[in-house]
Design a protein around this nucleic acid. Structure first.
Lengths: 186, 186
DNA sequence: ATTTTCCCGTGACCTGTATCACACCAAAAC
DNA sequence: GTTTTGGTGTGATACAGGTCACGGGAAAAT
């Protein structure tokens, strides 16, 4: 079964025809390590689904430091939601940590697809709810947990991440410096 | 026009009949300052809309310190989304900072309403998207901004808040101690 | 009216984390 | 193979913000 179908069917059931229709709204794209799919200032009109590889979305502050909002690995969706939903210029960057294979859907195609297939509207609505809950928990974690606790929680939830991405990126996701993270876990 | 109707019509247009139908799915409730609408451990099956007053949703850590996730004032929705959506026991508390008048809808009624009125499904979907974007920006702000910067951004975005709620709650929302906040803005 | 609680500023001190600087090593680029 | 780049650990030092403690005044409770 196509991995995207498997992914969608975790939330809604599909017939063969429905999935064919869904897939026809996507385009495949390959990107190599260090290549961008979103750069700050752009208008983002695509949402990406990761078939293979690993990406990061982040902002860059005035001092040039990166702050990671999200990683994207197999079966994850990634884009700048603010730009994608509100049609505003992007504040974030997304690039590949590894060579990656992606499927993307344009805003227009997503609108078409949700209009004609109510299941997909429900699918994305659920995704949005879960994404919101995850972000809510991340806010709470940033408010109440120490760097060490945040690290342990991340390790527990996404152990694969620690095998794949450099620790300085983990540090940037957790909101601590590379050096501090290194000292916390000798 | 009913304030709830005005609120909903900011995102989707309604006929009189549609709004009557919507309103019939809600119940009014009054709560006094210090009263809870959600307490940790409960199963939350209601979403609240604030007609009048002010509330806060927060977690309590092991040391007893409160960390504020969200304030709710007029025209805001408030509940524990994680518990409400996933049907898990609540990790958060919600209580009134002022005497408040609320309208609530149960999970069941919300399901009924979204099933029979597609507009409301779209309304809540949009709300969810915007909520997610707001949380995303809050995460980024916690990662990249100092306490002072976070304060200034909050003041800019929600000046009313500073007129209504004690500064210690603002501090708790920003993720700094009351004393530090007091020193930052003498 | 009196008492109690809460709000808020402020001093003294402590601690977690940032920053800067350097060194080592592995992996990528040439 | 050699060079360059990037990832990681570690020391020294600086600082933002936390914690504890106190007091005064406003607001709520009695």
């Amino acid at each position: 079964m196509h991995p995207l179908r498997k992914h969608i069917e975790e939330l809604v059931e599909l017939t063969d025809e429905e999935f064919d229709c869904i897939l026809s709204h996507f385009e495949p794209i390959k990107k190599r390590k260090h290549q961008y799919i979103v750069q700050g200032g752009e208008h983002v009109d695509k949402e990406y689904w990761v078939l293979k590889g690993c990406l990061k979305s982040y902002v860059v502050d005035e001092s040039g430091k990166e702050h990671i909002l999200q990683f994207g690995m197999e079966n994850w969706w990634i884009t700048d939601y603010e730009s994608f939903i509100k049609h505003t210029p992007s504040k974030i960057y997304i690039d590949c940590i590894e060579d990656s294979e992606l499927l993307y859907i344009t805003y227009e195609n997503r609108e078409k697809l949700t209009a004609q297939m109510h299941k997909m509207e429900r699918f994305w609505a659920k995704k949005s709810k879960f994404g919101r809950i995850a972000l809510q928990n991340r806010v709470l974690s940033l408010l109440k947990n120490s760097a060490k606790e945040r690290h342990d929680l991340l390790l527990e939830e996404y152990p694969q991440l620690f095998q794949r991405v450099p620790k300085k990126l983990i540090a940037s996701y957790l909101g601590v410096s590379r050096e501090t993270l290194s000292r916390l876990f000798p």
